[in-house]
Design a protein around this nucleic acid. Structure first.
Length: 318
DNA sequence: AATAATCTCAACCGCTTATGG
DNA sequence: ACCATAAGCGGTTGAGATTAT
């Protein structure tokens, strides 16, 4: 990594040597931002190398372009992704894989960098914590059956204050019980919220840059073909395919969740009542290997509701 | 209060694709 | 058709911020 070989760049300052000859790297200063913004306001974007020189920036054109597109451009949205945006990302990623730029085109104001970061830091984190390969079918199913319905519920809650979302939500059949394992089609949602009009027959096979070729296969293979299933649920997934779940597998280790994740002893009842589904007497939330369940209740793929729904499914299948 | 561990995200790199001569 | 340059993309890094111990 050549970056580490470079002299450290002090925020807002540069050495005389850097001033004279070297290209600057690292964080942008306010002055640089101002120079770039003003130059683009006068002359527009494009021809970045020339732009960098003419604007008096000691940066590469590449660096200028990135700074502008990811940070300075006026219509960039800041702050957390809304549940609707998260839904869009999940759905679009399932269609296109790691085509961040393409995905970002459907999320106005969001950059490919931001979406990529979201996927890596939030989505993949969940996979790691569950010991599921984030590019596995299992994780895909978990996303479909638990995270997406949760997000839809969030959207429904939000819709009370938004006429637009209210309309959207009323058109999608958000399951009252996540344990239904029913994922309503998102196509309606997506077309409303993001005006997805790209119907190009994108094919993973045609892109060498896609690394998730096996993540969301276009013709989804029924899990029952691969695993021994005593009893399973079926549900149409977001693309109308059918997926199957072996509850026992989910509960008993197929997901390789640390046993504390399902063990009642591993959690206090307080954390369960905290999410409103279980009444419990109890003590403080225990912080063990499963502490993320307690801490990130509002922004995780899995929460206590989900864990208990897994448990319920397991009981039902006995 | 101090330190360690973890997370976030801006910025970089290398590679691919597009464009123009 | 070929080459050079610019633009675009996805993967990765690491400084600073935040959280846990």
């Amino acid at each position: 990594n050549t970056r580490t070989a470079m002299p450290p760049v002090t925020k807002g300052m540069s050495t005389p040597i850097e001033e004279d000859s070297e290209l600057r790297r690292g964080p942008w200063t306010l002055e640089e931002d101002t120079l770039l913004t003003h130059y683009i306001a006068r002359h527009g974007e494009g021809r970045w190398n020339m732009l960098a020189k003419c604007a008096g920036l000691k940066r590469t054109g590449k660096s200028c372009r990135l700074r502008w597109l990811n940070y300075l451009k006026p219509d960039i949205k800041r702050g957390n992704l809304t549940p609707e945006e998260q839904l869009s990302i999940l759905e679009l990623h399932s269609k296109w894989g790691n085509r961040w730029s393409k995905i970002a085109q459907h999320l106005p104001g969001r950059t490919d960098n931001e979406i990529k970061n979201y996927w890596r830091t939030r989505v993949q984190k969940q996979a790691r914590q569950l010991n599921i390969e984030s590019n596995s079918k299992r994780f895909l199913e978990a996303v479909r059956c638990f995270w997406i319905p949760r997000l839809l519920q969030k959207v429904e809650q939000t819709s009370s204050s938004s006429p637009f979302l209210k309309e959207m939500s009323s058109q999608s059949s958000v399951p009252s019980q996540v344990s239904d394992c029913t994922v309503p089609s998102l196509s309606k949602f997506s077309s409303l919220s993001n005006k997805i009009t790209d119907n190009s027959n994108y094919s993973f096979e045609n892109s060498s840059s896609v690394t998730t070729q096996s993540l969301y296969p276009t013709n989804f293979t029924n899990i029952s073909e691969q695993t021994e299933i005593s009893e399973h649920l079926t549900s149409p997934n977001v693309y109308g395919h059918t997926c199957a779940y072996n509850n026992n597998q989910i509960l008993n280790g197929s997901y390789n969740i640390d046993s504390s994740g399902y063990d009642v002893e591993g959690f206090s009842l307080a954390s369960m009542s905290a999410v409103g589904s279980y009444e419990g007497s109890a003590s403080e939330c225990q912080m063990g290997e499963g502490n993320w369940l307690c801490n990130e209740m509002t922004d995780t793929l899995w929460n206590m509701d989900d864990i208990w729904q897994f448990r319920e499914l397991g009981e039902m299948s006995k």
